[in-house]
Amino acid sequence: MSAVLVFVDQPSAHGGAAALPQSTQELLALARAVGEPVVVLAGPLSGEVLTALGAHGASRIYQCEQSELFEYLVAPKADFLTHVAAQLQPAAVLLENSAECKEIAARVGIALSAGVISDAVGLDAGLNVQKSVLAGSYTVTARATTATAVITVKPHSVHAEEAAVPALPEVEVVSVIFGPASLAARIIDRTGKPASGRPELTEARIVVAGGRGMEGNFGPVEELADVLGAAVGASRAATDAGWIEHSAQVGQTGKTVSPQLYISAGISGAIQQKSGMQTSKVIVAVNRDAESPVFDIADFGIVGDLFTVLPQATEEIKRRKG
């Protein structure tokens, strides 16, 4: 069975309760389905992470924590992954679909002369990749024509579960020699952002999003999100106004989300907003203008004032949940 590499970046830093980020669990489930899962891990390997990787079926772990990986942008991580891939000649290299991982994939593709497919939502045993394009208006099947396929996979593309039989991974510490061109974009400063305690936007089952109609007060959106265990999203109008951080933006230049439920409040539904949320399973819209384009794609639309509708729904959910 050929190796399938799964790139894992600093799992201990993901902030969730589980030892492994949800995305890593999903990638390992996919890797098991198409080959022998081998983890390429950037950062320290704790006992807890080692056990969890084994439980998810990782047969081997290649680890590197050289400081260059974290001092320069993208390129050293790509070099590390390329180094392992060149050795193992895997059928596929899987990464999560974050901006940084897509760029790592891009560089690994050039280094290995391997086709890169981003934004995958499905993958079969023949490494045919499903993805949606043109803002969700088409679903295509794409394939790499090269010996190795480099694929970045969106959250929820597969059900994450532990392997039927846990593995006892062998660990090999890799030492990578970075070329001068890879040590060129130096990270000279970092500012952490406070954690919200809410689920990650692209991984959340439910997203409650607010737009210009929030008029500077995201309270009603946040309170509804919290009773639903949802992530908070926003339109660009709301993030540009500074009412909420830019990382909450949903849309063409923000996050693409496909949750089970997307509740849109005070958002008109411009094409750039729709392109980030129209593959959601169920869409609910609250807007006081019946002509808003968001109603064209809403499964349940309410023409009304969000400042009365959202709090009423929040109270009712609290009451029902007792």
Partner: peptide, 22 residues
Amino acid sequence: SWTVVESAQVRPPRTAGTIIND
């Protein structure tokens, strides 16, 4: 190119559901 698109299906456009006035 190192990738090919084998097939494409149009995703049926979303249609409006129930719209109510508050």
